[in-house]
């Protein structure tokens, strides 16, 4: 187990190193941030000063080495725009994104698994066919369009739910969260639902396929031959088996929920990391972009590791220490 974790952490460091190279040089190619920062009327001397202040006068490889040296000490650079440490900026916006991602995951599990279970157990019922047709929409409709429609229906037409911002937040364990207030909850419903829609569809399809497969297995027939109640067969024998793929996939999807909540955050003006990233990209704020992506890499690696550990708990056949992956 500990060998497994150490190996994972080493892999994480390697991925982060590669990522930093790609992003650092990549952003540099796109454009010159100085032109975004200094006013159009600035003279040559002012521009030169700005370049020196940001450390952009040195050759790019020297800038990178300096970045690596600082990164070793936990300093990922200062934002060109805000003049604040990039990490601090990101951590400031992180709780909003995390609570949005976890709410979406929660919705996906809460809605997707029961629907998938129903569809898997009654494959021929018209309701199941409706659920499956709905999941196709969930997969194919673009997030930004669904988000706009949600706002149009629930905020503009019906006026039930607010469409922008986090609403009232309260501090819980040192984090500001919308989940602790009624107003905050109202604000999070639409963006969370929008973000969750694709994952709900995914959960429905995964669960349904798993149930359909498990129901035909000998162990289910044997459980029936033992005279067990239908509930026991479904909720113990079948569900425990299908949780293995569902937990794996949904766990990995959490990473993409955090990393790619950008569109939803933009539409619902949710002040999370995604919005910060978009703004940083538009302003060529390289330290923020690099730091953000590094953090996302850490998230993915951590989540994958947790999923692997969960997997070994759910499936007794899996043992972690001897795996090459």
């Amino acid at each position: 187990m500990s060998t497994f974790i150490i190996r994972r952490l080493l892999q994480a460091i390697l991925v982060m190193a590669l990522m930093s190279v790609i992003v650092f040089f990549g952003v540099n190619v796109i454009g010159d941030p100085v032109h975004m920062l200094v006013s159009p009327e600035a003279d040559q001397a002012e521009i030169e000063a700005a370049i020196r202040r940001l450390g952009l006068d040195k050759p790019i490889w020297e800038q990178y080495l300096l970045f690596v040296k600082n990164a070793m000490q936990g300093d990922l650079g200062k934002s060109f725009i805000f003049g604040e440490p990039a990490l601090k900026l990101i951590f400031h916006h992180m709780p909003a994104t995390l609570e949005l991602a976890f709410s979406a995951l929660f919705l996906a599990v809460l809605i997707g698994i029961p629907l998938g279970l129903f569809a898997g157990l009654n494959p021929d019922s018209p309701i199941s066919k409706g659920i499956m047709a709905g999941s196709i929409f969930g997969f194919s409709l673009p997030t930004f369009w669904v988000g706009l429609m949600l706002i149009l229906v629930f905020s503009v037409e019906l006026g039930w739910l607010p469409s922008t911002g986090r609403g009232e937040t309260r501090s819980v364990l040192g984090f500001e969260t919308s989940l602790a207030t009624v107003d905050g909850l109202k604000h999070i419903i639409l963006p969370a639902l929008n973000l969750a829609l694709l994952k709900i569809s995914l959960a429905v399809r995964l669960t349904r396929a798993g149930v359909r497969e498990a129901m035909g297995q000998d162990y289910v027939k044997f459980a029936r031959a033992k005279g067990l109640s239908t509930n026991r067969i479904i909720f113990v024998h079948v569900l425990k088996n299908i949780m293995i793929p569902v937990v794996t996939v949904m766990g990995l999807e959490l990473g993409s929920l955090i990393g790619f909540s950008v569109v939803t955050e933009k539409i619902f003006a949710w002040p999370g990391m995604g919005k910060l990233l978009i703004d940083a990209i538009l302003q060529l704020d390289r330290p923020v972009v690099v730091a953000y992506l590094m953090i996302i890499v850490v998230f993915f690696v951590l989540i994958n590791m947790i999923v692997d550990i969960l997997y070994s708990i759910l499936d007794p056949r899996v043992r972690l220490q001897d795996q090459g992956a």
Partner: peptide
């Protein structure tokens, strides 16, 4: 195949 793989 007859014993459930995830239950003791």
């Amino acid at each position: 195949m007859t014993l459930n793989p995830v239950l003791r």
